[in-house]
Design a protein around this nucleic acid. Structure first.
Lengths: 126, 126
DNA sequence: CATTCATGTCAGAAAATCTAACATCGGCGT
DNA sequence: ACGCCGATGTTAGATTTTCTGACATGAATG
C-alpha cells in the first residue's frame, strides 16, 4: 500500500490542470498557498506542480469555505492535524527506510528509469 | 473499481511531466504519437495532455524498444489488442451507461464541482 | 553506399504560468 | 454611513513550456 501513497504525493500536475479538477481559479489556488494551506512544489522553471493529495486538499478547502470556515480557521485545523500526525510519527520511529523508498520508486509507476534521469546510454544489458 | 479506471484515463499531465515520469524526450513521445502508438488529448490551447494510462503505455513502448521490437511491431501488437478488446466489448453490450459516468465523475476524485465548470455563483445552498 | 528508422536539434510562434500591483465586493464593527 | 479586511478579480510584463516543421545524424541493413 506504500506505492499508492507515493503516487498520490507525486507533484505532477500544473496549475491549469488543478484549476479544472477543482473548479478553482489560479488566483484562489495561489492565495491558499500564500496562506499556507497548500504547499505545491516547483519545477526547474519555477512553475507550481501539484500532487493528487494537493488536489484533495484544495477540494477540502473549498468545502470548508463553502461551510463558512475562513482561511484562518482552515489553517488552524491543518496545523492541528499536522501536530497530531507528528506526534504519532515520533512514537513509531523509522516506518520507512530510504531503501524502501528506492525500491518503490523502481516499481510500477516509475519503472526502469523513473524520475532519476539515467544516463542516456543506460539500457537493460542485453 | 470503475472510478479508478476513469482516474487513470483522465488526461491531466503535460508533456513535461510525462518526460520525467518516463525518461523519454519530448521528441520521442511526439514521435510515438505520430506513429499512432499513443493518443494524448489536447487542451483548449492545443497542448498535449496525458493520462496515467498513457504513461503506462509509454513505459511499455520503451520496454518493447529496449527489447528490439521496432515501432511497427509495437503498433501491430496494439492493433491486435484493440481488435480483441473491441470484440469483447461487442459481446457484452452496454457495460457502462452515461448515467454511470456522470455519477462517477461527481464522486471522489472530482467531487462537487469537478470538470464541468459550474456557474461561478454555484455553491451548496446553506 | 544509399535508405530507413529513431532520435537530436533548432527556430519561431503560441500558450501557460509567474509575480506584483491595483480593483472590487461583501461583511462587520463603530 | 464609513472604513477596514478578507477573499477574489483583473491586468501587465516577463519567463517558461509547448507547439510545428525542418533539417541533421547515427546505426542498421539491403
Amino acid at each position: 500500500m506504500k506505492e499508492k501513497e507515493l503516487r498520490r504525493s507525486l507533484a505532477v500536475l500544473p496549475i491549469g490542470t488543478v484549476m479544472k479538477l477543482t473548479s478553482l481559479t489560479a488566483r484562489q489556488i495561489r492565495y491558499y498557498e500564500a496562506q499556507q494551506l497548500v504547499f505545491p512544489e516547483r519545477n526547474e522553471g519555477n512553475r507550481r506542480m501539484y500532487s493528487l493529495n494537493d488536489v484533495d486538499r484544495l477540494l477540502e478547502i473549498k468545502d470548508y469555505l463553502a461551510d463558512g470556515v475562513n482561511v484562518a480557521g482552515i489553517k488552524a485545523i491543518y496545523d492541528q492535524q499536522q501536530k497530531a500526525a507528528q506526534a504519532k510519527a515520533t512514537a513509531q520511529q523509522k516506518p520507512l527506510t530510504d531503501e524502501d523508498v528506492r525500491r518503490i520508486l523502481q516499481d510500477e509507476f516509475i519503472r526502469q528509469g523513473g524520475l532519476g534521469h539515467p544516463t542516456p546510454g543506460m539500457q537493460r544489458p542485453l
